[in-house]
């Protein structure tokens, strides 16, 4: 009798034991077990450079190969392939929006894509990804750039800022604005600028950015602008007629990026431009509607 009992109960007991072990997680540092064995390795703060590293052999870390001597100029125009195009204002005069006494006192233009009568596209950023190899910035006192908020839109709509260059953000409107500059490499900037504050707030960004940073206003959600922070002077924004000029480029082949806010990808990831000493390289860059996918 007792033997039979043993026979039937043993597997049950075994099952119970196993279940317990299973539920307790085996007690040997499973998964993220707080008490599992952990080792800590110390890593030096300085980078150990190895000679056979890919970066070491390649001389072109950023695509620029400087040959020859003396600077040249890269200039040209960015145009829309079907010529002039215009968009209705973002906010019509008198439209019922926040702070309408100020914000729709005049129409707020739609600056998502600005094309003039001759087809030139304004506000296109053309810039080198990084300073050309061997380029040494001159020690220059950079003038502060003025960035205004007037009639509830940012002026200018697109601008290039040098790393470390002060930017004075002012507010010509009798309502408060808040410039939120979404830079990626420096800590972002989001600060209220009091109504009619023409002294404004001065800030600067120490690090260059890969792409123009978006600027928005927390109070008026249609307000938008873009600021590119570059650590070299070879970055421009096209003028109202789409023209641009980048002087003093070291001669050689450079790879430019062409970027516009209405295109979800850069218009050009790597535009190869060869600059000869003392000469001007001219290009007309033409883009169609299909490129501007964000419209």
């Amino acid at each position: 009798m007792s033997n039979r009992l043993l026979v039937t109960s043993l597997p049950l007991c075994a099952l119970a034991v196993c279940l317990c072990v299973w539920m307790s997680g085996c007690d040997q540092g499973i998964g993220g077990g707080a008490y599992s064995d952990v080792s800590v390795k110390v890593r030096s703060a300085t980078l150990e450079t190895t000679a056979d590293d890919g970066a070491g052999t390649s001389t072109t870390t950023t695509d620029q190969t400087a040959t020859g001597s003396g600077p040249g100029t890269f200039s040209g125009r960015v145009v829309f392939d079907t010529g002039a195009i215009s968009f209705p204002p973002l906010i019509a005069q008198g439209q019922d929006v926040k702070d309408k006494q100020v914000c729709s006192a005049e129409a707020v233009p739609n600056e998502k894509l600005v094309v003039d009568s001759s087809g030139g596209i304004a506000n296109v950023f053309i810039f080198l990804d990084a300073a050309p190899k061997g380029y040494k910035p001159e020690k220059e006192e950079l003038e502060p750039i003025l960035f205004d908020q007037k009639n509830c839109y940012f002026r200018p709509h697109a601008l290039v800022l040098r790393a470390g260059q002060p930017i004075r953000i002012i507010n010509s409107d009798p309502v408060a604005h808040n410039a939120n500059i979404q830079v990626k490499r420096s800590q972002g900037f989001s600060q209220t600028v009091n109504s009619s504050d023409t002294t404004g707030v001065v800030t600067s960004f120490a690090k260059s950015e890969k792409l123009p940073a978006r600027v928005t206003c927390e109070f008026h959600n249609w307000m938008e602008a873009h600021i590119l922070v570059a650590d070299h002077p070879f970055a421009v924004v096209t003028a109202a007629d789409g023209s641009f000029e980048i002087p003093n480029l070291p001669s050689g082949t450079h790879t430019f990026r062409v970027w516009h806010e209405a295109a979800s990808d850069p218009l050009e990831r790597g535009l190869k431009v060869t600059v000869k000493p003392g000469e001007s390289t001219t290009m007309e860059l033409k883009y169609g509607r299909a490129k501007f996918s964000k419209l």
């Binding site: 026979v7 039937t8 043993l10 597997p11 075994a14 099952l15 196993c18 279940l19 072990v21 299973w22 539920m23 307790s24 997680g25 085996c26 007690d27 040997q28 499973i30 998964g31 993220g32 077990g33």
Partner: peptide, 25 residues
């Protein structure tokens, strides 16, 4: 013999077996 089989079958169910929680990563 039979209960030995049951025992062996239940072992993989235990924590050390197939159903152990995922490793932290």
């Amino acid at each position: 013999m039979r209960h030995l089989a049951v025992l062996l079958l239940t072992l993989p169910l235990a924590g050390c077996g197939a159903f152990s929680p995922p490793e932290a990563e």
